[in-house]
Design a protein around this nucleic acid. Structure first.
Length: 580
DNA sequence: CGGATCACG
DNA sequence: ACGTACGTGATCCGG
């Protein structure tokens, strides 16, 4: 096996979640059509057999831990985490078929092994449920008979290698560069972030849940009194029935199933009936309680005492990461009740949390990509960008810009990033659509290059069916040629938004890699623990704070050289809220 | 299991 | 005539 060019490997475990997964077996392949399976943790093994298994794992350790042997895997972050839990530090990870597929075929939504095998190798994989059963009869992989497990696991390793051999020569040019200098180095960063996790103040969350629970009970009674009867407030259907039929309130837009009860609709009804504000408060507290304060304490890993998310690297259309199980990229911040939850995210004992945010990264990327001189100038002067935009479109001196003008300009700046039309801008700003149209015209008159950029994005999408980011990532826009105007408009907005959002994602990925390297080089104990699209969060020993602040600022701001400066703002404290 | 809603950038 | 701002993930309801 030592003469093989590449070794594909796969682990079999007791759980899909790497933090709670125990190693059951490993499979390998070095030649297409062949595979090995090494059981190490099947139940029912006698003492002698188990001893043999332990010995085999011990023998494999030098191979797994030596970077001389190049490893490829499918979602190999999972395997690396499982092995680390088993005390083995996987080294020599050179490729991940899921990530190659994500770069080569951004239009294909799924980069799972089964679908890739069917699509590219015309091969139907043995399904997991075929081996373990499903429903009540489902068994752990540890209980699967070894001969059955062998066929299943060896196939995974074999197919992974075959996909790698097919993909590898196709991954060339800028995409190869992106893969080798960004996605693969980032994979190692994410392994460490997920492994480290983040600490949570469990008592605090329980207190919040109790507080919210009390408030919800009171609100519930008041809502029933106002409605003249009990119903399920959490059911949009029943709520709509009460509001629009029983109480006869005027309804706004409809959904597929009835009248909408979404926030923006209800807010307009607030003056009409006392029940509305009660329902809105009930909704927001119920959301915070069920999604965060009740749930997060249950997800604390008993071994580390911390919470370990998954950062998914092959999910989004734009190259952003996503976070799941649990999602730590949507922790509340906008309301006071929500911020209480953020206060429960804390550093390790004796440490601080450091939060570093890119300021206006998407608008800076837009100024760069569109090569828009006025926008670039205001970023170079470090101006308040929304004030400057207000000054431009309302044609007044910056110091004459009112709060309302700035608010409108801010909305317009976002509207441009999202490709918004006059109708939606009018609705958002609650102004007439003629007025909204004038705003947009003034905007393009002052920032003419933005208009050219929008047209060039659409044009690239039409000719290539994808648009590109600053590092050459492809973002699929397949519907750009749709004959359905609605679908096509949506694709046209994507064609503009994707390069901006995707380039910002590229930049923070590079920053993560460079910060991580510096932390290693300087032998610091600081850990990167979270990424939230334009923000990085670190768990920092107090003694390292000054050094880490400097290092993070430099590496984030210098991650790439744009035609405008990148600016990072930082905060720190004893919880995530305080760090902002 | 899809739809509605809402938490974040 | 129609719909109408980009990207995610979790929870709850109800068929």
């Amino acid at each position: 096996m030592s003469t093989a060019d590449y070794i594909s490997l796969d682990t079999e475990t007791t759980s899909l979640k790497p933090v709670e997964a125990d190693l059951v077996g490993l499979s390998f392949s070095t030649h297409a059509g062949k595979g090995w399976y090494v059981p190490v943790g099947h139940v029912g093994a006698g003492a002698e057999e188990q001893l043999a298994c332990d010995l085999v794992l011990y023998t494999l350790r030098p191979l797994l831990e030596n970077s001389v042997y190049p490893k490829v895997g499918q979602n190999i972050k999972y395997d690396a985490l499982v092995l680390r839990r088993a005390g083995i530090e996987l080294a020599g990870i050179v490729a991940d078929t899921m990530l190659i597929s994500y770069l080569l075929h951004p239009a294909s939504r799924s980069h799972g092994l089964d679908s890739m095998a069917a699509k590219y190798l015309n091969h139907q994989m043995i399904s997991y449920s075929e081996v373990t059963g499903s429903g009540k009869k489902q068994i752990s992989f540890a209980e699967v008979a070894i001969d059955v497990a062998t066929r299943y696991a060896a196939e995974d390793a074999d197919i992974t290698l075959q996909l790698f051999q097919m993909f590898w020569p196709q991954l060339d040019g800028e995409l190869r560069q992106l893969f080798e200098t960004v996605e693969m180095p980032l994979l190692s960063v994410l392994i460490d972030m997920e492994w480290c996790g983040v600490a949570l103040d469990c008592q605090k969350l329980k207190a919040i849940s109790a507080d919210f629970g009390g408030k919800l009970a009171t609100l519930e009674l008041k809502i029933y009194a106002a409605a003249g009867g009990e119903f399920n407030i959490n059911s949009p259907k029943q709520l709509g029935e009460v509001l629009f039929n029983k109480l006869g309130l005027p309804h706004g837009k409809k959904t597929k199933t009835g009248w909408s009860t979404a926030v923006d609709v209800l807010q307009k009804l607030a003056p009409e009936h006392e029940i509305i504000d009660l329902v809105l408060e009930y909704r927001s507290l119920a959301k915070l309680k069920s999604t965060y304060s009740d749930t997060l304490p249950r997800l604390i890993d008993p071994i580390s005492g911390r919470i370990h998310t998954s950062f998914n690297q092959a999910v989004t259309a734009t190259g952003r990461l996503s976070s799941s199980d649990p999602n730590l990229q949507n922790i509340p911040i906008r309301t006071a009740a929500g911020r209480a939850i953020r206060e429960a995210f804390i550093p390790a004992t004796g440490h601080l949390l450091l939060a570093a945010d890119y300021s206006q990264i998407e608008l800076r990327v837009l100024a760069h990509l569109a090569d828009e001189p006025v926008l670039q100038q205001s970023f170079r002067n470090n101006e308040d960008i929304h004030r400057r935009t207000a000054s431009e479109i309302f044609n007044v001196f910056p110091e004459m810009v009112t709060d309302e003008m700035r608010r409108r300009a801010k909305t317009i700046n976002f509207a441009v990033l999202y490709g918004m039309g006059a109708f939606s801008l009018a609705k958002e700003l609650e102004i007439g659509s003629k007025e909204a149209k004038q705003y947009i015209e003034s905007y393009f008159a002052r920032y003419p290059q933005i208009n050219n950029f929008i047209e060039s994005c659409r044009s690239q999408a039409r000719s290539e069916l994808y648009v590109t980011t600053i590092l050459g990532r492809h973002c699929a826009v397949p519907d750009i040629k749709s004959k359905n105007g609605q679908i096509r408009s949506y694709a046209e907005r994507n064609a503009v938004n994707y390069p901006v959002q995707g380039s910002a994602a590229d930049i923070i990925k590079v920053a993560m890699i460079n910060v991580y390297r510096r932390l290693q080089q300087e032998d610091l104990k600081t850990k990167m623990v979270l990424q939230v699209h334009d923000e990085l969060v670190f768990d920092v020993p107090r003694s390292e704070l000054e050094q880490v602040k400097k290092l993070v600022e430099i590496e984030m701001e210098q991650a790439v050289a744009l035609l405008v400066p990148l600016v990072v703002s930082m905060g720190w404290g004893t919880n995530w809220c305080e760090a902002h």
